[in-house]
């Protein structure tokens, strides 16, 4: 049983991901507020995101209280959330005519 750590920062109470304040080891047990503890599966660097709730494929990933993209597969609490399971919804609107 490893000690509980508090390396995760939740930026908004509605978020389903938290961000690492510092590097975290694989298998580290992270406390999120009063609610609970989750285990991180892989070693991660500062600034990377960890799911703090289950996020079903097709659902929004929320950070800062707003969507930062859509889950491209089912995500479990403790999972690393990054390019392999999160995709942008943003479609750049360009004025092609002006660029000609």
């Amino acid at each position: 049983m490893t000690e509980e750590r508090r390396d995760l920062l939740v930026l908004n109470i509605t978020d389903n991901v938290a961000v690492l304040k510092r590097a975290a080891e694989a298998g580290s047990r992270q406390r999120i507020g009063a609610e609970g503890v989750l285990e991180i599966g892989v070693p991660l660097e500062m600034g990377h995101k960890v799911a703090i709730a289950a996020i079903a494929e097709g659902k929004d990933v929320l950070k800062y209280g707003v969507p930062i993209g859509v889950a491209t597969r089912d995500i479990s609490p403790g999972d690393h959330v990054h390019l392999h399971n999160l995709a942008s919804r943003y479609t750049v609107i360009r004025d092609w005519e002006a660029e000609e």
Partner: peptide, 18 residues
């Protein structure tokens, strides 16, 4: 940006927008 943990353009922009 991706190495620093940012996954999408909207996520990066939200960091500045904050």
């Amino acid at each position: 940006n991706a190495e620093g943990g940012l996954s999408t353009i909207e996520e990066k922009s939200l960091g500045a927008y904050a």
